[in-house]
Design a protein around this nucleic acid. Sequence first.
DNA 1: GCGTGATTACTCGGATACAAGATGTCCGAGTTTGAGCGG
DNA 2: CCGCTCAAACTCGGACATCTTGTATCCGAGTAATCACGC
Lengths: 132, 132
Amino acid sequence: MKYSQATDYALHAMLYLVAAAPDKPVGVQLLAEKLGVSQTYLSKMMTKLVKAGLIQSAPGANGGYRLRRKQEDISFLDIIHAIEGTASFFECSLNHDNECVIQKVVLDAERQMEQYLQNKKISELAEHFKGR
Amino acid sequence: MKYSQATDYALHAMLYLVAAAPDKPVGVQLLAEKLGVSQTYLSKMMTKLVKAGLIQSAPGANGGYRLRRKQEDISFLDIIHAIEGTASFFECSLNHDNECVIQKVVLDAERQMEQYLQNKKISELAEHFKGR
DNA sequence: GCGTGATTACTCGGATACAAGATGTCCGAGTTTGAGCGG
DNA sequence: CCGCTCAAACTCGGACATCTTGTATCCGAGTAATCACGC
């Protein structure tokens, strides 16, 4: 059980976008260079972030990505869900009648974690990241 | 990001062991039948649980598995860690100097979840499971 | 009866097969900016 | 100086290729209880 590297990249990319100037789009080329990933692969994740409504893309020359919402509104959970999907960690494969007590416990635990990530906004970290 | 089915099986198997008589070992054959898994695959997980010190195995005829510790001491987290390993969800792949603020946040979130699972003991669910 | 060996019922562990998902690359298509060229 | 065209700089999205990991099976080895047989 692990978050994918894609999530890692997406979080770092978002952090970079928050720290960057809000009006100038940042190109994939620059982002990929900063993160040490290939442009094409990173663009896959950026596409997911766009579809999730977190950022918007500007095609054409001097295009790139910029935040869509206010940075205060973007939580870690938003980004993680955009990449990993919103499916829950656990799904009981046994077919005992409807309710599985085990699943209930694990989902409760998951909710604990998600609540923490929901309250943690990306903007809180922005100042730590300036100039990277 | 998902827990493996193996974890699902292990949790159910442990729940069954807790609900079963504490002195008589339960064979893989019976467990596998109850859970709807193949014996050989289930035995892989049981081996992990043994190595984690949660249960002990009795070879030979009338052998099988039984709890090693008192059931009150066995938490969900113990079982999950036995199967999934204790590695954390997240590891930053970038090499920015030592500390990654993103990793810190995610690990804190993980700790929230683990704390919940640590406090949740398998014995709490035993009575819901009797006779399955 | 009583010991001794064979059979049976188990677990244990390695080797292997298979499928799915994560990771990563390549390439063509569409879009906007900006430069260059002709009038 | 103005407008048109064309090239460059981008993103977008699909189609692959590859590698790891989860899932699952098969088989041989070891071990303990039980049964059978011979003394």
